[in-house]
């Protein structure tokens, strides 16, 4: 679990981990965009479960807790602010719709919501892409983001990653692991596209994504 605050500010003490009766106050202690990872995680679980029982106030609390993550992630992938707002809205409505199906046994709410958001953003990128250049091969597509994309990914990772520990852990990866993961995740590329852009065999990229993520998992202490 991350110990550092995303903004580099010290993590506020929120007392005990959020309990059911303290969810509202915990949510209030983390206004939009300033989520403290550890407590936010368990608070998000509880809020999402309550939202699943039709509690709109809990859902509003969940929005306040996670909207910056969702919007930031979607925007990172889509770039376009207007589209990002639209997709963020879709994501939260989907979260509301599916809330009763969230099972804390099978993962935490933050990860559940983030996966949903990322998937939506990627779907949007790919359907837009399919509509405009369905015919083009990946190689022909490379100019879309090749030079900019290459450098920018590195730059984004260097400049915009605010979790110190995440940055340190990313630093422990090989360059190929890091690039494979960040290009796929932040740009919405498939592993075949990443392989093309990195001029690396497809099976290698596929493997590097997996062993890179496993190394990150171990470094970050993300457990079952």
């Amino acid at each position: 679990m991350l110990a550092d605050h995303p903004d580099g500010r010290p993590l506020r003490s929120v007392g005990d981990r959020a309990r059911a009766d303290a969810v509202a106050s915990t949510a209030a202690a983390f206004p939009e965009g300033s989520t403290g990872p550890g407590s936010a995680r368990s608070a998000a679980d509880l809020l999402l479960q309550r939202a699943g029982r039709g509690d709109q106030d809990a859902f509003a609390g969940l929005y306040d807790l996670l909207s910056a993550r969702v919007f930031g992630l979607v925007r990172r992938v889509l770039r376009d602010p207007a589209q990002s707002e639209e997709v963020t809205q879709e994501v939260f409505l989907e979260v509301w719709r599916r809330a009763a199906r969230f099972d804390p046994e099978l993962g935490n709410a933050m990860s559940w919501v983030s996966s949903l958001a990322h998937r939506r953003a990627v779907d949007r990128v790919r359907s837009a892409q399919a509509a405009t250049d369905r015919e083009r091969k990946v190689s022909a597509m490379a100019p879309r983001d090749s030079d900019a994309g290459h450098d920018e990914v590195g730059e984004q990772v260097e400049l915009r990653l605010e979790y110190e520990r995440l940055r340190r852990c990313l630093g422990n990866l090989t360059e190929l692991q890091r690039e494979s993961i960040t290009m796929a995740y932040y740009n919405g590329y498939t592993y075949r596209e990443v392989a093309e852009l990195l001029a690396t065999p497809v099976p290698t990229v596929k493997t590097r994504m997996r062993d890179g993520l496993i190394r990150l998992r171990d470094c970050l202490g993300v457990g079952a």
């Binding site: 965009g33 933050m110 915009r160 605010e162 998992r217």
Partner: peptide, 24 residues
């Protein structure tokens, strides 16, 4: 997969950016 998704979620959190207030 569940664990690797949780890792990916942390990559996502690093990009956090507040949406416009009207979205709420």
């Amino acid at each position: 997969v569940e664990q690797l998704r949780a890792v990916a979620a942390l990559l996502g959190a690093a990009a956090a950016e507040s949406p416009p207030p009207s979205l709420r």
